[in-house]
Structures are given as C-alpha cells and as structure tokens.
Amino acid sequence: MIREITFGQYYQTDSALHRLNPRVKLVGTMIYIISLFLFKEAAPFALALVFLAAIIKLSHVPFKYMIRGLKAVIVLLLITAVFNMFLTRGEALVSFWGLTITKEGVIAAVFIALRLIFLIIGSSVMTLTTTPNQLTDGLEKLMGPLKVIKVPIHEISMMMSIALRFIPILLEETDKIMKAQMARGADFDSGNMIKKIKAMVPLLVPLFVSAFRRANDLAMAMEARCYQGGEGRTKMKPLKYGKSDVLAYVVLAVYLAGVIVLGKWL
C-alpha cells in the first residue's frame, strides 16, 4: 500500500531525459511551473499539455507509474477546486442552500485543478528521471553564486540529498513496521477517526526510534570518513554541459516563447 507513493522517487531506466544534465532539468521544471501560472487562457494550456506529453513520452517512464503519485494529492486537489467553484464572484449558474456556483468559479476551478495536476506531473518527471545525488549536485551548482553572500549552499544541498535519500528508506521502514504490527493483530483501516489515530501509535513510535537511529548511524559514518562540510571538497564527476543540454535549453526557450505568444496575442 505504502509503495504506491511515487512522488519524489527515481525510476531506473535509460532515456534522453535521464542522461540530461540535472541543471537543465531543474531550470526546465522551474520554467514549466512558471509558464503554468502566466496565463489563464486555453491556448497556452494546450501547449503546456502537448509539451508535458512529449516530455513524458521521452522519459520512458510508464505513464501509469507516473500518475500513481497523483493519488496522494487527490483530496487536496478536490478541496482547492471546490473552494474555487463556490467562492469566486461572478455570473451565477446554480445556487442552493445559500451557496452559489458561478461561471467564473467553474472556470477558475478547472484551471487550478489543471495547473496543480500539470505541476505535480511535471515535477515528478524531474524526480523520476534524476537521481537524488544528481539533483543536489545540480542544485548546488545552480545556487553557487549565492555563496558570495555567505549562504551555506553545500550544507543546504547535503541536507536536501539526505532528506531525499531517506524518503524511500522511511517508506520501506513504515511498510515493515506496519506489517509487523498487523502480524500482531493491528488494524489500521477500520474504526472511527479517534480509533484510527490511536492505531497509529504502534507505527509512529518505532518509526521515530528508527529514524533517529538511522540519522545517528549516518552521522557517525560520515564523520568516520572525515566529512567536515563543503570546504575544499572536489567532485569526482563534475557536471558538464553537452550538446543535448544546449539543445534542451533551446527547446525550453522555444516553449516559453510559444506560451507567451499564445497567451498574449491569441
């Protein structure tokens, strides 16, 4: 059950996207997210959809696997859409019990839902095709200039990579502890809210204990290998831009221009 959550996970396969420089993917994701929030017309959204579809096709990650990550946020999605539907002022469509659904509300709800879905899938494409290590390498490089104003870039990216690395570990651990407690007759699914929350205690206590134990072990292992922060650290495989990366930047620029053109003049 817990294995269903795919958000933030890496999918091992070989594709043009997998081989791309992580910096391109980070910048690309950012541009994509910004492009989603630039306009409210249908045409740019259609382009965003086409672009996303092409990227998904290029990533060689099965679409079914990708949208599994959406399941986790479906509630959030519905709440946002419903609130938009009822709380936007405008031309009334239906009203009941003192609530009114407006035409503008429906449009806003559809757009916000689409934006969120695109945003989540778009960023999952990045995490699915980039290992956590590459991701933080890319981030560290991108944020490099901030070092001048004394932002601890290396530490931030190290923390991020550890956090990302721990997601699957903790998920697996949760799965294991859940099973162990189920073997002792635990029931996580039935009963009312209070009962369900109480049923979580036998899961959460061992999970916290194990998280602390793992963190402790990791710190020890890092210190044993003389880790002392970013000072003087070099990379075995420094990031370098290749031909395909330049091409990807061009594609991104064309996409962004396309969205702006479609939104402004059509």
Partner: peptide, 11 residues
Amino acid sequence: LVFQYPEHQLF
C-alpha cells in the same frame, strides 16, 4: 510471524 529484527517494532 516474527519479523527480522523484531525488536524494532517495540513501542
């Protein structure tokens, strides 16, 4: 069923 490292499930 007693899992591997069963002491990790004590709470």
